[in-house]
């Protein structure tokens, strides 16, 4: 029986952001869908599929900043399950613009405090590397597609995917 070609096990995760990087990825699919279908096994990709699994993956791509303890714990779980973790887009890499409330004056913070309390927001929004070790970054708002390709291809090579 023919052995199935090895694929890169990938998770794509969204935290606090506009999901612009996800949209850029769906546009990159226009050109790369046939190649990526053969080489990538999307184990977790909520915008693309319903049956997502949280289990060992080769590369986890993280979009968005971290706004709550729940998000922080989920990110740590993802880190534990992934060999490599890549922060994608400005919110994940720098925190901004999702972390803009970190720079609000006292009056504005008081104005929004009831929402922060009601939904369990962290006192300050964090970037991904504030919470877990990050192996690579794709900066940009939205992410730079060329840089994303470079990192993806590096990982395909590193994990021996032809």
């Amino acid at each position: 029986m023919e052995e199935q070609a090895k694929k890169l096990r990938v998770g794509w995760f969204n935290f606090t952001c506009s999901e612009d990087n996800t949209i850029v990825l769906t546009e990159m699919l226009n050109d790369y869908w046939q190649e990526w279908k053969k080489k990538i096994d999307f184990r977790y990709f909520r915008i693309l599929k319903t049956n997502n699994v949280m289990e060992q993956m080769d590369v986890a791509f993280i979009e968005g900043a971290i706004t709550s303890d729940i998000q922080s714990e989920k990110l740590k779980t993802i880190r534990d399950l992934s060999t490599k973790l890549v922060a994608v887009g400005s919110c994940a890499v720098t925190g901004m613009p999702s972390s803009q409330r970190n720079n609000f004056d006292e009056k504005t913070t008081e104005e929004i405090q009831f929402i922060l309390d009601r939904f369990g927001y962290l006192p300050k929004v964090q970037k991904v590397s504030d919470v877990v070790k990050v192996d690579a970054e794709v900066p940009g708002c939205p992410m730079d597609p060329n840089k994303f390709l470079e990192i993806l291809n590096q990982n395909l090579k590193e994990f021996g995917i032809n």
Binding site: T16, T67, Q100, R101, F104, T108, I115
Partner: peptide, 12 residues
Amino acid sequence: SEFKRFYTQAIR
């Protein structure tokens, strides 16, 4: 359940 990013405050 998307967490707020407070744009209407940020533009002030």
